[in-house]
């Protein structure tokens, strides 16, 4: 059976959730993926990276634009599936992936299995594993329809593994974007950084054992409030009761992927860095110049957090004061 994957990209290239689906689909397909459909601009070697998963064909839409929602490509994908007749088409369970596949399923009358945890070969047809009854029961489902089947794969449950060595042929496509003007998008209101879930935060200030005490940890709070960041911490901070469990970053806490993380007084043990490996930019402050955190930091400051942070906070406050117009 031919298996396809629809991948997504963003400003930083191929999305992690798409890597996961590519890995999972290659396993389901028994090693050879029939095709990958790329509906994203080819930024940061995106196509090159998709090739490393070894799909035989890549349908590439070069002008993919981030403003187009998944639903808008439904007609294009539906037509492509009708023409090429793959057996199974997969995407990640993201807003884009689910929007695209569910609309395609509706318009082209194809079965869809959303949010799958696994797909295996059953006695007659494929078995799709989903969670039922508030995620407490695992249900194995099949489809008896003689149509291509669509499915989305849950995020964050597959270890990415590449399957290089095969050459893919790239076919450029130019999809007709069909927007359904039934609703009108008005605006997006960004989340309040102080209360947003840590795993969704854009900017994080994190503190560790080096903060010394709960009073010392107040510096982290203050800096976070000033720059509009979320507060996080290491296992040490959590064990000392400076932060609740939901604010802990690492193997036993949350996995975060912020645009910027400022690590203060955190040495950078593996258990902690595991939870922040997807951070785009890391700034580290630590008084031990041999701390492992410096090896992965984009900028490191060797110094005492109790001196650096107050100085930094002072500068930011001064900067804000100067920026304020006269008489305000």
């Amino acid at each position: 059976m031919q298996i396809w994957v629809v991948v997504e990209g963003d400003d930083h290239g191929l999305r992690e959730s798409s890597r996961e689906v590519l890995t999972a689909a290659t396993t389901v397909a028994g090693g050879v993926l029939a095709a990958a459909v790329v509906l994203a601009p080819d930024k940061e070697n995106l196509v090159q990276e998709v090739m490393e998963f070894g799909p035989q064909t890549i349908y590439l839409h070069e002008e993919g634009s981030p403003s187009v929602t998944g639903e808008d490509y439904a007609e294009f994908l539906g037509e492509l599936i009708e023409r090429e007749r793959p057996g199974l088409v997969l995407a990640a369970e993201t807003q884009f992936g689910k929007g695209l596949l569910s609309r395609t399923a509706l318009q082209y009358r194809m079965p869809i299995f959303p949010d799958c945890l696994g797909i295996s070969q059953g006695p007659e047809s494929l078995l799709f594993e989903r969670l039922w009854y508030g995620e407490r029961v695992s249900a194995l489902l099949t489809s008896a329809a003689e149509r291509p089947v669509l499915a989305t794969w849950r995020e964050g449950i597959v270890n990415v593994k590449k399957c290089p060595g095969l050459n893919s042929t790239v076919q450029k496509v130019r999809p007709q974007v069909q927007t359904l003007n039934l609703t009108r998008f008005l605006e997006e209101v960004k989340a309040d950084p102080l209360t947003v879930d840590l795993s969704e935060a854009e900017v994080i200030v994190a503190g560790g054992g080096g903060m010394g005490s709960a009073a010392g940890f107040q510096l982290i709070q203050e800096l976070a409030e000033l720059i509009g960041a979320a507060v996080g911490g290491s296992r040490v901070a959590r064990d000392n009761g400076w932060i609740p469990l939901k604010r802990q970053i690492g193997q036993t806490g949350k996995t975060v992927a912020p645009r910027l993380i400022i690590s203060c007084g955190i040495s950078g043990a593996t258990q902690h860095t595991f939870g922040m490996r997807d951070a785009k930019k890391i700034i580290a402050i630590n008084k031990d110049k041999n701390a492992p955190i410096f090896k992965i930091a984009d900028a490191g400051i060797v110094g005492d957090v109790h001196e650096v942070l107050p100085e930094l906070i002072k500068r930011i406050k001064e900067g804000k004061q100067n920026a304020r117009p006269v008489g305000a």
Binding site: P292, I296, I301, L309
Partner: peptide, 24 residues
């Protein structure tokens, strides 16, 4: 050993005054 984070060659500065300025 690095917990999955790619090693980066960021510049490391010393001292709290200069450090704060750099972060700012």
């Amino acid at each position: 050993l690095s917990g999955g984070v790619k090693k980066k060659k960021g510049n490391v500065a010393e001292g709290s005054q200069g450090g704060a300025a750099q972060i700012y």
